[in-house]
Design a protein around this nucleic acid. Structure first.
Length: 484
RNA sequence: CGGGAAGUAGCUCAGCCAGGUUAGAGUGCACGGUUCGGGACCGUGAGGUCGGGAGUUCGAAUCUCCCCUUCCCGACCA
């Protein structure tokens, strides 16, 4: 953890959300810019946050039967090109290596934008029998996409993610896998990051290049915009056919396996910041917080006896804190308490314990919760043991607050007119019957500036109600929002 | 990738239009002191290839051109 004092100012969240976001990322020392366009350094505090998130998801990936492995960064151009829709979709944003040292390569190498192509190429040699299936693998890697417009964490040229890749005997088993992993993403977002999400299916125009369909989770940021926070794709046999993955089934018939892929990236850290942060800075849910509890001693240099008591109390809290609580005593000298409070508030530490002579006289310390500023004077006795429960309460409070925002800014619409009205004052999540035809998707986008059909909600059905755009009977309920 | 804005100390900026000694402020940083329950104060000090390159000029932070990076608005974002 850096000891550098934070500068006072971050932009006002209510007045300039975009600038607030960048300020928080940089002042809280999560990440910073580099000399290369769109590439960022993830600093120790930001990386610790990512590690917590990654470890939680990695646990789910393994729990659901997957193994981690590693494929190379470079993909030969000819490998990338075999699945037509896929290469067409990704070509504009692929970075190429053309030279090795000063020698021009005979075939240029793509820096992976995603790894379906190289994985399929390799597994074509490894899958021969129905006994070889299913294949359930994952990798935690960096990928590169040459985006036109970048933004710290949300859309960077290089980013970190996990990409899962599976091969199955049956279409249904692959479909179940797609659902299973989307559910892991929901669990990560809601139970760990305290971000409520809506599950659904991407429209044809938005799905992964080469997929039969794409499922995603959509989260609401605190400005009302949507963030796609994780995607799970059913690839059917599109890639396995193109890449010649064949196996012999129980009836001695040659078959192509059914395939899925699914990914979640460092983008989710941007989502965490924008979902929970406030005017003062970050608010990090305890389960993923690098530091869950900060203890700030308040001492007077001219009163050694009092300082001794304060230090004793701090040491006791540190010692008695449950083993799995990530606690730090901020013993930095020469900093006034207010400065330390601001430092840790900016960094979103969920709980602060203020230890001062005044409270200690009564055997107490002051406990402050970051999410809502709720304060309590509590006994030092037994405090260490209570921390896990207090942290769980803080986790719930953050989740409830985010859920409340989502509820308040979600609206039902039945027509284009209502849709336009719903967006008139502020960005919202609008839901309405949708026939899922491209013309209607275009009409919706045209009606509300910058809003798009994000997903067809998995939790709702239109049951034949008239499409909000064309009036034809619709099966799906679309979620319409502005998106990052 | 198109339109616009910006880049000067760690950070936020002034200086540029009307080119001219050792380039400034606030804040942050280091040290000393007074302080210490919400970003306190006093003193001393360190810190800058003025984003990079080329050009014009006796002389460029300042004028011209090219490039890089960031921000905003679009297009794009499978």
């Amino acid at each position: 953890m850096a000891t550098e004092r934070s500068s006072r100012q971050i932009a006002s969240k209510s007045e300039d959300f975009d600038r607030w976001y960048v300020d928080v990322v940089r002042r809280a020392e999560l990440a910073d810019y580099t000399p290369v366009r769109g590439c960022m350094v993830i600093r120790p505090y930001g990386y610790a946050l990512w590690e917590r998130t990654r470890d939680a998801l990695d646990g789910m990936i393994k729990r659901t039967g997957h193994e981690n492995m590693y494929f190379p960064l470079f993909i030969p151009e000819s490998y990338l090109a075999k699945e037509a829709q896929h290469v067409e979709g990704f070509a504009p944003e692929v970075a190429w290596v053309t030279h090795g040292g000063d020698k021009e390569l005979e075939e240029r190498l793509a820096i992976r934008p995603t790894s379906e192509t190289i994985i399929c190429s390799m597994y074509a040699d490894w899958i021969h029998s129905w006994r070889d299936l299913p294949v359930l693998i994952n990798q935690w890697v960096n990928v590169c996409r040459w985006e036109k417009r970048t933004r710290l964490f949300l859309r960077t040229t290089e980013f970190l993610w996990q990409e899962g890749h599976t091969f199955h005997v049956t279409d249904e088993e692959a479909a179940a896998e797609v659902d299973t992993m989307l559910e892991c993403y929901r669990e990560l977002a809601e139970d760990w990051l305290a971000i409520p999400v809506i599950k659904g299916r991407k429209t044809e125009s938005e799905k992964f290049a080469g997929a039969r369909y794409t499922l995603s989770i959509e989260a609401m940021m605190s400005d009302g915009w949507a963030l796609q926070a994780g995607t799970s794709h059913h690839l059917a046999q599109n890639f396995t056919t193109a890449y010649g993955i064949r196996y012999t089934d129980r009836q001695n018939q040659e078959q192509h396996p059914f395939q899925t892929s699914w990914g979640l990236s460092t983008r989710i850290i941007g989502g965490l910041i924008m979902a929970h942060g406030d005017e003062v800075g970050l608010i990090i849910p305890p389960r993923v917080a690098p530091i869950q509890v900060v203890v700030v001693p308040i001492t007077r240099s001219n009163d050694e006896a009092a300082a001794g008591l304060v230090e004793d109390a701090c040491a006791r809290i540190e010692r008695e804190a449950a083993a799995d609580v990530r606690l730090r005593v901020d013993r930095r000298e020469g900093m006034r308490p207010g400065e330390k409070f601001a430092h840790w508030e900016l960094r979103g530490v969920p709980l602060r314990i203020t230890v001062g002579a005044k409270d200690l006289a009564g055997g107490s310390v002051t406990l402050v919760r970051r999410v809502d500023g709720e304060q309590a004077v509590v006994p030092v006795d037994g405090l260490g043991a209570r921390l896990p429960a207090l942290l769980e309460e803080a986790q719930s409070a953050i989740r409830s607050r985010a859920q409340k925002l989502l509820d308040e800014r979600s609206v039902e619409v039945t027509s284009i007119g209502e849709l336009v009205g719903a967006f008139a004052e502020q960005p919202v999540f609008a839901s309405g019957p949708f026939c899922n035809r491209p013309e209607c998707e275009v009409a919706i986008k045209a009606a509300v500036h910058a809003a798009t059909v994000r997903i067809l909600r998995a939790d709702r059905s239109a049951d034949g109600a008239p499409c909000l755009a064309c009036g034809q009977p619709a099966d799906d309920v679309a979620l319409i929002a502005r998106a990052y």
